[in-house]
Simulated scan of single mutants.
Amino acid sequence: MGRRGQSITLAISERDKVQLENLALELGITWGDRPNISKLVEAIARRKLLIRANYDWTADRINALNQARIALVDAGNIEASMVVAQLLLERSEIALPLRAELDQFVAHPVQPWRLAIEHYIRQSQPFQLSYQDAAEQVWQFTIRYAELTTHEDRQYLDCWCDETTGNQDLPELAHNRCLRLDRITDASVAPVSGQWHGGLATILVEMHLFRGLAFAYRSKTNQDEVNEWLTDSPQVRRVVRRVSSTFWLLREISRYWEDCIILSPQSLRMRMQKKVEAMHRLYDSVQDES
């Protein structure tokens, strides 16, 4: 007959007992089909299981992982984002507000309309949605091409729509819309009949870059069709980019002002020139008042 092991008594709450049983089940430490806490304690004593601190992660690490979770959601990788959320929830140092946010996310990882949009995009299926703009006006759009993207740290749906009313971009890009995801009205996405387009409407924009920007510039993948130094002006870089929204292009180049000019198309060049003239008048008016 084998020698019986010595017994010990654990003074723990019923909740902690359940947690130990669940841990034993997760690790496959059972007697038959039931969890075995004694074997679990024995495995710890024999260092088959290592116990480590669950409260030593820095705030930077936690924030980085949470940002990664959000980025995975924005990229449509919900399964991976759930793994990161579960990893964070296992930590004891997670602050209560973040824990509540993660609990809510795990319970409802993504809104149904977001899943519907991603499904329609994958299936090349035209669809309709309702959208509330910054002035709280509700629009209905029939979308025949769409892609989820990021502009200045916000998530958007860049799409080709039947409707052009109210679009202030160039006529060639009038069918393109850039819709903030958080302004899409819930439970408003539905499929429609018709053809799916191959992409957004685009135009070619030629720019010249000067001084430090010319040397520091890095080509935009899948956007720049030409990126070269001018032979007759060796310190000027010529860039020809395929653009689907002049709004975002002007936002980008306005940071560089005198280091970047638009050459074509003429309509966009004039639009940028008017913005510069308006800013010049504004500066003059402030100077006159002072």
Rank of each mutant, 00 (worst) to 15 (best):
A64I: 06
A64C: 04
A64W: 07
L65I: 04
A68G: 08
R69M: 15
A71H: 03
A71E: 09
L72T: 08
L72A: 14
L72P: 08
D74W: 07
D74A: 14
A75R: 14
G76N: 04
N77K: 15
N77I: 10
N77Y: 09
I78G: 00
I78P: 01
E79M: 05
E79A: 15
E79V: 10
A80W: 08
A80Y: 10
M82L: 15
A85F: 02
L87R: 12
L87A: 12
L88R: 07
L89P: 01
L89H: 00
L89F: 01
R91W: 11
R91K: 15
E93W: 06
I94M: 05
A95C: 02
L96H: 06
L96W: 03
L96T: 12
P97M: 04
P97T: 05
R99T: 10
A100P: 00
E101M: 11
E101C: 09
E101A: 15
E101P: 02
L102C: 13
L102Q: 12
D103K: 09
Q104D: 15
F105G: 08
V106F: 10
A107R: 13
P112Y: 06
P112N: 06
P112S: 06
R114W: 09
R114D: 02
L115A: 12
L115D: 06
A116V: 01
I117D: 06
I117L: 12
E118Y: 04
Y120R: 08
R122V: 10
Q123L: 11
S124Y: 05
S124N: 14
S124E: 11
Q125H: 11
P126I: 01
F127S: 09
Q128A: 02
Q128P: 00
Q128T: 15
L129K: 00
L129T: 04
L129V: 08
Q132N: 00
Q132S: 11
A134P: 03
A134L: 13
A135T: 06
E136N: 11
Q137L: 11
Q137I: 11
V138S: 01
W139L: 03
F141D: 02
I143F: 03
I143H: 01
R144K: 11
Y145I: 06
Y145H: 14
A146K: 01
E147L: 09
E147R: 09
E147Y: 02
T150C: 12
T150E: 13
E152M: 12
D153K: 10
D153P: 00
R154N: 14
Q155S: 11
Q155W: 02
Q155F: 03
Y156K: 11
